[in-house]
Design a protein around this nucleic acid. Sequence first.
DNA 1: ATAGGGTTAG
Length: 752
Amino acid sequence: MLNRIYQWRPIRFRLKSQFLTPTFSLLFTKPSVSAANITSDDEPSDPVREILNKASTSKDLFGNHSVRTLIPTLNSLQVDQIIVNLGLEDPDSAIDFFYLLRNEYGFCGSRVSQFVIGHLLAGKRRLKELRTVLEQMLHEEGSGSAPSLSELLENRFRAWDSNDLVWDMLAFAYSRSEMVHDALFVLAKMKYFKIQASILTYNSLLYNLRHTHIMWDVYEEIKASGTPQSAQTNSIVIDGLCGQSLLQEAVAFLQENEGKESKALHCFIQYTYVKVLYNVLIHGLCIAGSMEEALELTDDMERHGVQPDVAGNIEEGFMLQEEMLSQGFQLNDIAYSVLLSSLCKRGQVGEALRLLHEMESTGLKPDVITYSILIHGLCKQGEVQEAIQLYNKMWLKRIFPNSFTHNAILLGLSEKGTLSEARMFFDSLTKSDLMENIVWFNIMIYRYAKVGKVREAVQLYEQIIEKGITPSTVTFNSLIYGFCKSRKLAEARTWLGMIKAHGLVPTDVTYTTLMNALCEAGNIRGMFEVFREMEARAVEPTNITYTVIIKGLCKQQRLQESLQLLEVMHAKGRSPDEITYNTLIHCFCKARDMRKAFQLHNEMLLHNLQPSPVTYNILLNGLCVNGDLNDADRFFSSLQDQNIRLTKVAYTTLIKAHCAKGDVCKADTLFRQMVEKGFEISITDYSAVINRLCKKNLTIKVKVFLHMMLSDGISLDQQICFVMLNAFRRVGDLTSEFELLAKMIKCGLLPD
DNA sequence: ATAGGGTTAG
């Protein structure tokens, strides 16, 4: 049967010269297999006889000086003669002689010598060495060599002890070397000679062929040959079927061949669940229109060796899942974790929590990993309180959090909670007996830096040094960021030096942070100096670095150069993102070039970049400031018509413009729209409108907005009250003035 | 077999 599978292409017998290293000035020029035409009966030539004589008289053949001097003069034929003769008398000497030639003279022996040694090793059950010798031979011969090697084995070694073992090992070695056709050929020969192949050889072949239909031929062959199967055999078949997306076949195979506790089943369940999950997610993303994410996920899937289904097989996936559940197949805890982690990555934490409960109700025990995945997911979604509840729950269950868990919580607290909350948790971590983690410090230092508390940041740095913890480049980057935020650029540069002093390397982030600060300070020359140092140190600029430079160029009105840099980015594959474009669009708006601004917006779409809400805010503001307000209105409406996501800023931008330019009715309408959309309205938003109305003495409208604001439950502040009082006074509206004064007294904004 | 983390640009 196996012969049928593989039709041999004509074999070209390859002449291979074998070389001793040139220092020994001897070439073996005989083709490898034809060199085999010797037997132990051939009359040995002189050096051969001499060495063999020495061997029979001396125990230590290779310590013998005259043997040593003879070796470099031997040719391939003579080596074969020695090994064959030694092998008959004293196998150990033959093996030692072979290793000596190989290790000290770089000579591997002819195929005959290798097979002789192979048989001797097989006889001594030194199977690993046997495999190595054969693998080396196959490595030298390459694929397609099975017929010639088989022929040699067949003609010259048929009667040798351990010949069966060598055949089997030859097939195994071919299979392991991924020369599958050769392995099949050897197997076919073995079958012809009625030599039983071992299950190891079969499994290896099965594994190599598991993604082809030939797998079944091998499988049938195993069954027919009566070779006892190993536990691995079925797992390989299942793995292969899953890899070929033949899930129904896999189920059928399991039902026929496996109990419910088997390894093959586990292999299957995990595979299927991951696959079903991926497909459901991809399907969902396609429907939601996030093709990019869907494609990303498909890549991810293929990287994990899972073939995605063509769209439409999702239903099948679900049915399969149900079928499996109805048959009493159970997910194990790890399969649940895989599922949970994928859901969390997609932001479907609620779904993940539901699964956690399902898991618990089926009697499975979530472990520290399960909990960490969930806690991390919750923190990423900003649901830190939920995460902390879960964290407490795992303590109650005596499942102890590890560094994964702690980092997630600290990061969540520092992002969503208050700084002092994060600090309390940080202190509790550093006070406990845990191994201290530089990442905890980095998180806190960055947070302090961000809010301008450089002193606290530096104190933490000093703690790091006192405790003997090694700071990372990120530590210094965050400190530099802090000094930049506090506009202490000279000190920021000092810390750049600290990186080097600690034997660390400044990164793109280091340089970009500094460059941005210099740019903000208007020191474009300084920015370019840092950029030159970055280049000199061969630190690759990122798209962020380029964006900063573009910002700098724009500041100096070097708009053409900034556009050129945009091209450079495209050319270098450092693709500009929406922030790059926003920066540029902002610059062109400022330069009152709305045409170019919109052209850049279109270019974004061409490059498949989704303009962000910020992009629209910039463009809207540009239209409000530079153009006709009607243009701004039209643009705004068209965005609304296309259901494009807008932020509150889009509304307030337009509202402010209408207030300032006098169309208060329009402003009023927009304001109500904004409220209806459910945006949270603050005193700043009301103040922005009221301020502008007061400036124009439109006190009637001021009273409308004041009323709206109070009924919205927003309390007054002193500043806006004085603005209104002045306006009421200017227009002579005494009643309103006194009413407002009374309100202020009530709120404690004025001493009565 | 199952998990991740800190820093830069509008």
